[in-house]
Design a protein around this nucleic acid. Structure first.
Length: 423
RNA sequence: GGAUAGUUGGCAGAGUGGUCGAAUGCGGUAGUCUUGAAAACUACUGUACCGCAAGGUACCGGGGGUUCGAAUCCCUCACUGUCCGCCA
């Protein structure tokens, strides 16, 4: 959610930059500004009425104490009429506040100045490509077949127990999951992130806090009886740790990392893209989250990208880094880097991490602020990134490392798996 | 699921109709004293909105009501604690 003050002060600039997203901001901004003006006028009138009413109430009390019953009764009438008009104003004020907020909910974050314009992932800017793309034998097969051959993942069993998109990991496949989770967590802790294990279900306030509601209502599993949502990413519970806080500037940045399963309904996804591990309803991910000083947040963003690049290097996977174009940028992000690994058997790049700076967009909803000395609190910046999402990493590991002898486990992972090869 | 007690400022905790944005203690900030520190003492110490400012308004879990006036009375919802039951 953008700050009203910023909308008022930088309207033209925002409109310009939103064009990168193909978002016509002008109507929305004008609307918000108009509604807010009305809101302020209404509040001023209301405040004046209430001030007068308070004044009268005080005098009535005083008159009663002095025993001047009649005088008191006389001005009571005035207070009563004031009450009626102020109730009217209060109703109107609440209405306008809601209207302003609902309008603000429709406006996405302002892209950073370096975000390229574009319509889809085709227009993303590849800023780095690293690692040799392996050439596989002619009989190389995709991961969903490898998973079957080596009994690593049972997709059919998952269908029986739950439904499509809920795989069962078995044997060395299960062990590999656990190894990757531990590896990612250890690396994050090494990089200065505090490990947390958050709840997997969140309440509405949290879902609003990070922007899943109202924007992505249908994407989350909802437990209606208790009105709780299954988390689509650890970003939600972890970032909400900081909701409604005022943090000392000297305590920034705050860095948290957590492993959780993630649950996504993925309504409307079909086709070859969703084959095997490519798109699941439940998957495992280690997420890193930061609360940063506005002046430092882009430094932190780079640091997080470096961290994930190192993970991929240690896993010996060829990868590339894409700067998302405006059209591909998420609703809440100001700047996002995607990291993709190359799947040799599918012959395509798979997105395994998305690292974003939300600037104050989330913080505004979260009421997450920091204070410098005795100054007024101001909004902090929030960032997060996957470090890393498991399924596509597993897909790439299986496919890229397949040999006639079996699937070779990268050196860095062996102390976690306890085996060097899957055969 | 049943019973019961709660929800007040960063924390603890008073306050049962007007002078209460709210005692007191702790914590925090600044100062005095000290070579320095500690202790002691003194002052300050919530957030948001409106306003150039002076100032005003709102907030004592959420919403609604009674009243000239509500932290305080009434209704309602949510949450938390404790005990019992069930259970990893």
């Amino acid at each position: 959610m953008l700050e009203l003050s910023r909308i008022r002060e930088q309207k033209q600039d925002i409109i310009e930059r939103m064009k990168v997203r193909n978002f016509d901001a002008e109507t929305h901004l004008n609307n918000v500004i108009k509604l807010d003006e009305e809101r302020r006028n209404t509040q001023t009138s209301l405040d004046n009425d209430l001030a007068e009413a308070n004044q009268i109430a005080k005098s009535v009390g005083q008159l009663f104490q002095e025993g001047k019953q009649e005088e008191a009764s006389a001005i009571k009438a005035k207070a009563s009429s004031l009450k009626i008009s102020s109730q009217e104003l209060k109703r109107k004020l609440i209405e306008l506040q809601d209207a302003v907020r609902n309008e603000l909910y429709l406006i996405p974050n302002v892209p950073n100045a370096i975000v390229p314009s574009g319509n889809s992932d085709e227009d993303n800017e590849i800023i780095l490509e690293e690692g040799a793309i392996p050439t596989l034998a002619d009989n190389a097969i995709p991961h969903w077949e490898l998973a079957k051959t080596y009994k690593l993942i049972d997709f059919e069993l998952g269908v029986k127990i739950t439904g499509a998109g809920f795989p069962v990991y078995t044997g060395k496949g299960a062990r590999l999951q656990r190894a990757l989770i531990n590896f990612f967590i250890d690396e994050a802790v090494e990089a200065g992130f505090d490990e947390v294990i958050p709840p997997l279900l969140v309440n509405q306030a949290s879902a609003y806090g990070t922007g899943q509601l109202p924007d992505k209502e249908g994407q989350m599993y909802h437990c209606e009886v208790d009105d709780l949502y299954l988390i689509p990413t650890a970003e939600v519970p972890i970032t909400n740790i900081f909701r409604d806080l005022i943090i000392n500037a000297s305590d920034l940045p705050l860095k948290k990392a957590g492993y959780t399963p993630c649950f996504r309904r993925e309504a409307g996804s079909y086709g070859s893209d969703v084959r095997g591990l490519n798109r699941l309803h439940q998957f495992d991910k280690v997420e890193i989250v930061q609360v940063a000083h506005p002046e430092k947040s882009y430094l932190m963003l780079n640091e997080m990208v470096e961290h994930v690049k190192n993970l991929l290097r240690k896993l010996e996977l060829p990868f590339r880094v894409a700067k998302l174009c405006g059209g591909d940028l998420g609703f809440t992000a100001a700047l996002t880097f995607d990291l993709e690994v190359y799947s040799a058997a599918q012959q395509k790049w798979l997105e395994v991490s998305s690292i974003s700076n939300f600037e104050s967009f989330q913080a505004n909803r979260l009421k997450l602020r920091f204070r410098e000395g005795n100054e007024k609190p101001q909004l902090a910046h929030t960032l997060n990134g996957s470090a890393l999402a498991l399924p596509r990493i597993v897909a790439a590991l299986l496919e890229n490392n397949q040999t006639p002898e079996g699937i070779v486990i990268p050196e860095a992972l062996r102390k976690y798996t306890g085996f060097d090869i899957i055969n």
